[in-house]
């Protein structure tokens, strides 16, 4: 695995300086902005106590696109992803500056209810974390919580549809009321995705959703993501270069909390402009 060879890149700091220099005078990297963005990060910095994990990140997410966040481990991908739906609020000592604009509204502002925000922005975690309840109750949790359905029949429909879309329905339809924790790892992760899409979020955040899965389960989730991208914007963190190349429309490369380069996946993987990006993609840096 590439990232196990953690040799200090010789040209790291100078390359970082070079990368910073490419920021335009307006402060945006080329390719960071899109027309009619769905979600925009503006000058986001995140600190854990005194340690800065993210430094001045600005970028856009377009409607119905899959954006991949890549970079060596510890570079702040998870941290950034969690700032999008304010999951960091509950982390002790975590502080965010800058802002995230969602549908034209800044989300880091007094008067914004993070609970309402998270109902519109689902998140799937690295480790499958179904609730210790039945399969049915897992998927039904969100709709019940937000009062999205009035009748039991309607709820049944939502549960079935969500499980159908994640390809889990046929595997679990006979044991909907069995504990979710009795499923396999891949099934649990698809259940978590079904749980997320059951509340019809506009944006889905995914943090290395396939890192614990085998290739078959991974392939199912990737095809599911392409399917979901027809209606949702997806931001996915991944360690897997092939996965980023396969599923994403655009890719952003991070290094030590800095956004180094962002562009179409084709461009990033075939003609990266930054040497840091190139080193990482070709496996010289891990």
């Amino acid at each position: 695995m590439v990232f196990l060879r953690r040799a200090e890149p010789p040209q790291s700091s100078s390359a970082l300086a070079a990368a910073s220099a490419t920021q335009s005078s307006s402060g945006f990297l080329p390719g960071a902005l899109v027309d009619r963005p769905r979600l925009s990060a503006r000058d986001i910095s995140v600190y854990y106590a005194d340690v800065q994990a993210i430094t001045n990140v600005s970028m856009d997410v377009a409607q119905h696109e899959i954006l991949a966040l890549i970079g060596p481990s510890g570079c702040g991908k998870t941290t950034l992803l969690r700032t999008f739906n304010r999951m960091n609020d509950s982390v002790r000592g975590c502080r965010v500056t800058g802002n995230v604009i969602f549908d034209g509204e800044p989300i880091y502002r007094k008067g914004v209810d993070p609970v309402a925000l998270r109902a519109r922005m689902g998140i799937v975690f690295q480790k499958p974390n179904p609730f210790p309840k039945s399969i049915y109750d897992n998927v039904a949790y969100g709709p019940r919580l937000h009062g999205l359905v009035d009748r039991q029949a309607e709820l049944d429909e939502v549960v079935e549809a969500s499980l159908q879309r994640t390809g889990l329905w046929n595997e679990v339809k006979d044991r909907l009321h069995k504990p979710a924790l009795s499923l396999s790892g891949g099934q649990q992760q698809r259940l978590c995705i079904a749980r997320t899409i059951a509340i019809a979020p506009e944006i889905i955040l995914m943090d290395e959703p396939c890192s614990a899965l085998d290739p078959i389960a991974t392939a199912r989730i990737e095809s599911l993501m392409r399917e979901l991208a027809r209606n949702h914007s997806i931001i996915i963190v991944t360690h897997n270069m092939q996965q980023a190349a396969r599923v994403s429309d655009r890719t952003a490369y991070f290094h030590e909390g800095h956004l180094i380069e962002i562009g179409t996946t084709d461009q990033i993987f075939t003609t990266p402009e930054q040497s840091l990006t190139e080193d990482y993609i070709t496996g010289r840096y891990g």
Binding site: N85, M87, S90, A116, P132, G142, R195, T196
Partner: peptide, 27 residues
């Protein structure tokens, strides 16, 4: 109680109180 459970519920849009009452306390 693992934080991943709190994260799961928070990520679904449960409030702090709901996270506690629905998931953390029963566990």
């Amino acid at each position: 109680v693992p934080n991943s459970l709190r994260d799961a519920a928070t990520g679904m849009g449960a409030s702090r109180l709901q996270v506690t009452l629905h998931h953390v306390l029963p566990m």
